[in-house]
């Protein structure tokens, strides 16, 4: 079985976001880049299948050269091969543009399953993976917190508001992963893993290699784009309540009832 995992590199979640000089993107000079946490869950899910039923795992990523580090991390965790699409012409792509690139790259790969995150925790677009499934003409199951493969089908659990849904799809299919760190506990890259990863195949491709022209993706093809960014409204400095326990409890209750009017 072949599994392709879509991995995006994003700013570390510790990052304090600052708006850049152009007013529509973020300041990236001091950012530490990491693998998107949900993609790390997807890699873990793929590696569990590699362990249990046997699978070859390929990491597919689109991004600048630094993205190689995140692919190497996934290879060190146990993935087999990596493909990076690195082309400046992809810059400014919207969700659909990114999906076009990834779907084109997918065409040259063998796969029974495509795994990805349900969202990248940078721009939180919640769309690229699912769009890849549509463009590739395969079914998808979203927000999985588990994944089993039997008899040519993938079965996942998907939490929705107030319920857990169990769904199945016939392969080939794409699954987006959700949950939390506690659900997946993604494995760390071991030292031998890191050594081995250095020798694993990692191919870099351009749009031309994928048979795409620059005007099909990137900023000029984007149907939707960010034209301005703003910071959330600063919260007014709050107050710390004074007094003994009961006084504070009374005052908080009063404030929430009379001032905030939320209880």
């Amino acid at each position: 079985m072949n599994i392709v995992v879509l991995v995006k590199q994003v700013p570390d979640t510790e990052t304090k976001i600052k708006i850049g000089a152009d007013g529509k993107s973020i300041e990236t000079s001091e950012i530490k880049w990491v693998m998107n946490p949900y993609d790390e869950y997807a890699v873990e899910a793929a590696l569990r299948l590699q362990d249990s039923v046997g699978a070859s795992v390929t990491i597919l990523s689109m991004g600048p050269e630094r993205t190689v580090e995140s692919i190497r991390t996934a290879l060190a965790m146990g993935a087999d091969t990596g493909v990076l699409v690195d082309d400046p012409a992809t810059e400014g792509s919207d969700g659909l543009g990114k999906a076009k690139v990834l779907a084109a790259a997918l065409k040259s790969l063998e796969f029974d399953l495509v795994f990805c995150g349900h969202r990248a925790v940078d721009s939180d677009e919640n769309q690229v993976g699912i769009m890849v499934a549509e463009l590739a003409g395969i079914p998808h199951l979203g927000l999985a917190v588990s994944a089993e493969v039997t008899d040519g089908k993938v079965k996942v659990q998907r939490p929705i508001e107030g319920a857990k849904v169990t769904m199945e799809a016939i392969l080939p299919a794409l699954v987006t992963f959700g949950g939390a760190h506690a659900v997946w506990n993604p494995r760390y890259a071991s030292l031998p893993g890191i050594m081995k990863a250095k020798k694993k195949p990692l191919e870099t491709k351009t749009l031309a290699d994928l048979g795409l022209s620059a005007d099909e993706v990137g900023a000029q093809a984007a149907k939707v784009s960010v034209t301005a960014m703003e910071m959330p409204q600063e919260r007014q400095p709050g107050r710390k309540l004074e007094g003994d326990t009961v006084e504070k409890a009374k005052e908080l209750t009063r404030l929430l009832h009379e001032e905030a009017k939320v209880i």
Partner: peptide, 21 residues
């Protein structure tokens, strides 16, 4: 919503439309 986000992404791709989530 959970289903709505899932639906919107696939719908936008099918329509070739831009989606803001």
């Amino acid at each position: 919503s959970v289903d709505g986000k899932d639906f919107s992404a696939r719908l936008a791709a099918r329509l070739g439309a831009g989606l803001a989530t």
